[in-house]
Design a protein around this nucleic acid. Sequence first.
DNA 1: TGCATATTATTAGTATACTAATTAATTAGA
DNA 2: TCTAATTAATTAGTATACTAATAATATGCA
Lengths: 155, 155
Amino acid sequence: MPGSSSQVSIEKKHEISGFTLEKTVKLMKLTFSRILLMHQYVDVTVDQWVVMHILCKHQQLSQQELGELTFKDAPTITRIIDLLVQKGLVIRSTDEKDRRRFMIKLTIEGIEKYRFIEPIVQEFRAEAYAGISVDELLMLQNTLNKIFVNLSKQN
Amino acid sequence: MPGSSSQVSIEKKHEISGFTLEKTVKLMKLTFSRILLMHQYVDVTVDQWVVMHILCKHQQLSQQELGELTFKDAPTITRIIDLLVQKGLVIRSTDEKDRRRFMIKLTIEGIEKYRFIEPIVQEFRAEAYAGISVDELLMLQNTLNKIFVNLSKQN
DNA sequence: TGCATATTATTAGTATACTAATTAATTAGA
DNA sequence: TCTAATTAATTAGTATACTAATAATATGCA
C-alpha cells in the first residue's frame, strides 16, 4: 500500500533529530579543543582560532563581516576580538570612511600562531574523517547545505 | 598519475571543515529556539526540552544517566535540572540505594508541557528536512556516526 | 537641508559548555 | 575491617550564544 509506505517513511524521517548532528559537532569541538590544549604555545580557543582563520584568509575585515563569515553574533564577535586583542594576536583600528566601524587584522604574532596551529587542524580533520571517502563527505556537505537553506528561509 | 590523484583527493577532503556542520547545527537550534519563543505557553529552552524529552522516554533517571543520554556534562545537567525544578517541570528525589545520587522525573505539568511541545518539534523537523529523502538522511546519520566513532577513540 | 530610519559596536542579562576543584558517599582491595 | 581509590553532584571560573537595549554614526527621503 503506497500510502502506508509513505506514512512509514515520514515517521522514520522524523526520528532523525538534530541530536546526532549536535553531539557530533560537540565532540568535534571538544576533541579539537583538547588537542589545542596539549600544545603549550597555543593559547587560543577553538572559536578564537576560527576568527583567526577567517582573518588570515581575508587580511582585514570589519567586525560585522567577521560575524557573517564565522556565523557568530555581534556581541560574541566583540568579546572574541577583545580577547584576541588582549593576547596581541589581532589589531582593531578605526575605519576612515565610517566612524562606527572597526577594521580587524592579525598581528605578525597572530599570523605566526595561526601558521603553527594550521597543521594541527589538518591532523585533527584527518582523524575525524578517517575511513570516510571524499564522495561521502561531499554528500554530507550537500545535505547539510540543504538543511541550512531550508532554515534560512525562516530567518 | 595515481599519486597525483590521491594527493588531490586528500586536499579536497581537508577543505571540508567542521564549519558547515557547526553552522547548520547552530541554525537548527536557533530556529527551533525562536519557534518555541513564539508560543506563550512554552517557557523552556531547547536544551531544557532535550532533557525533558529523555525523561519522558525513560520515566526516571539519575543526573549522571541524563548527562550520558543527552551528551551534556555534569555541571550543565545540574544547572538545567535546577531551572526545570524551579519551573515545576521536574522533581529531584534522593536514591534510596545511593545517597550521592538523585533521581529525576517529570512532573504532571512537565509531561503536559512536553506533550504540548512535541508536535512543534515535528513541525520544525519537517521544515528542516523538506526536500531531503529518507535515504539521504540515513546516509547523513551514518556519516555523522562514523565521525563520532572516530573521535570517541580519542576520548 | 533636516529629520526619521537604519546601522555598527557595545553592554547587560540569561543560558549553556568546558575545566578544575571540592565534598560526601560508595566501592575495592589488602 | 580499614583505608585508598572511585564516584555523584556541586561550585567556581572562563568562554560562547542569544535577546534586548543603547549610543553614536550613517543613510534615505521629504
